[in-house]
């Protein structure tokens, strides 16, 4: 997959940040290691970044750095779960998930007063896919089962959720990210969700 890349020099010119800031943000893990792509050019080794990802990230850092410390920001961007737990009422009140998505969860796992982060995440992803209209309620149950049973095994490392359909039969997969997966022709990837992106979005909502 050919990505649209931006060189370090162009990035600094475009965003107006300095080398010092870029290296500081790298040290604080505000910019993930995988985004630093080394390539040899005619001027020697140069560093490139995935254009859209880095520009969006730097924009966010610049907007938020007055309100949050760099460590707090790093926490927001990290794919590791936080130790937030919320009650059912609060999840609904703060509009983090809808009642319908929560009902699917309680139907399957029983009624629990407090949701740990991993469960909030699972319901949040379910909500997203239901809203998009790509999965049915029954498939939603399988999705929750997959996430709750297997997500913890990634231990906070990046992973993607892939939803495939073949001749009306559906399946969910969790794969570590970045990784390439290929399917036979008759199978269709309906949806690929980067869990890291979802976690980031969820963390903003929870904060």
């Amino acid at each position: 997959m050919e990505q649209d890349l931006i060189s370090k020099k162009e990035l600094l010119e475009l965003t107006g940040i300095s080398y010092g800031q870029l290296y500081r943000w790298k040290r604080k893990k505000l910019i993930p290691e995988e985004w630093f792509i080394r390539k040899s050019t005619f001027t020697g080794q140069e560093t490139f970044f995935p254009r859209e990802l880095i520009l969006a990230r730097i924009d966010k850092i610049k907007n938020m750095k007055d309100d949050l410390s760099l460590d707090e920001l790093a926490d927001m961007f990290s794919p590791a779960p936080t130790d937030v737990s919320l009650g059912k009422q609060e999840l609904l009140k703060r509009n983090i998930v809808s009642k319908m998505a929560l009902d699917v969860f309680t139907e399957q796992f029983g009624d629990t007063p407090v949701f740990p982060f991993a469960h909030i995440l699972a319901v949040f992803i379910l909500e997203k896919l239901l809203q998009k209209g790509v999965i049915s309620l029954d498939e939603g149950k399988t999705l929750l089962g997959t996430l709750i049973q297997h997500y913890g095994k990634f231990e906070g490392k990046n992973c993607d959720l892939i939803f495939v359909r073949k001749m009306g039969v559906s399946a969910f997969l969790l794969v570590s990210s970045p990784s390439d997966v290929y399917f036979e022709e008759s199978a269709k990837i309906v949806e690929r969700v980067s869990i890291a992106d979802v976690i980031e979005a969820l963390k903003w909502k929870l904060s």
């Binding site: 300095s18 080398y19 010092g20 290296y23 020697g44 080794q45």
Partner: peptide, 8 residues
């Protein structure tokens, strides 16, 4: 060193 990059 190969490259050296910084503010000051």
């Amino acid at each position: 060193a190969g490259t050296i990059e910084g503010d000051d």
